[in-house]
Nucleic acid binder design. Structure first.
Lengths: 121, 121
DNA sequence: GGTATATATTGACAACCATCGATATACTCG
DNA sequence: CGAGTATATCGATGGTTGTCAATATATACC
């Protein structure tokens, strides 16, 4: 229930801080959400997720490499971050490694972020 | 329209990369979205937005200071980032500065991010 | 003017992040 | 085994970010 302040009515010299506003989320919760946003907040990772989402099944690293404008070690680095975030998984087949998106995890993350965004707007 | 790869049918020694997967978003678009996610991806900024969203009208800096576990210069720093991102605005009244959320901008940002998230999950 | 308060800015520092060349590891084929 | 390929890891580097003490700026009141 938002309140509207009546600032003009306040006497000069009073304290301004009369609403005692507190966040509804603890700092720990805010930190967790911020971490999840950071996991997405990189153009290479967004493009990798884009490709993996649109290619049902498995995509090999060399395809992913071709899809983004950075070199192979950097692709490996971002794939590792996404794997550690639980958003993708990999499987080795012969000399290749195929990645695939974990749809359930991705959907759950999307929903957490959408919840967050719903809180302000 | 996602495709399922038939990896088991491929002869060993063939190239793995036969799908020529391309992202649907340009690197520039991905960068823009990543930037917007980064603007949110910080616990202090999330808490500040939380308070500002829940207090219709204006909230003074000292209230915001009380709501987050960092010192005054750091609060000022994050308020500046949010202001530069176009998500909040401020107004000086006497010796105090009141901040308020820009609901239209916040809603537009939310919608852009939700569009993005819809793309994978 | 002088003192007090609210907020912003500056400057320094540590931590973190993205990138890449070089190298390591693991696999395939001959 | 040796040569070639795919991917991961290491190590270095440059850039960015978060934080705070100190200081500056603006305002209010006496």
């Amino acid at each position: 229930m938002p309140r509207t302040l009546e600032i003009v009515d306040r006497q000069l010299g009073e304290r301004c801080c009369d609403i005692n506003a507190r966040p509804t989320r603890s700092y720990a919760e805010a930190t967790k959400l911020a971490t999840e946003l950071e996991q997405l907040a990189n153009p290479v990772r967004l493009q990798l997720l884009d490709v993996l989402t649109r290619n049902e099944g498995r995509v090999c690293v060399c395809d992913l490499e071709a899809a983004v404008p950075v070199k192979q070690p950097t692709v490996s680095h971002h794939l590792r971050l996404l794997r550690e975030a639980g958003l993708i998984e990999s499987e080795k087949v012969g000399q290749w490694v195929y990645y695939r998106i974990k749809r359930d995890e991705a959907r759950a993350l999307r929903e957490r972020i959408q919840n967050l965004l719903g809180a302000f707007a």
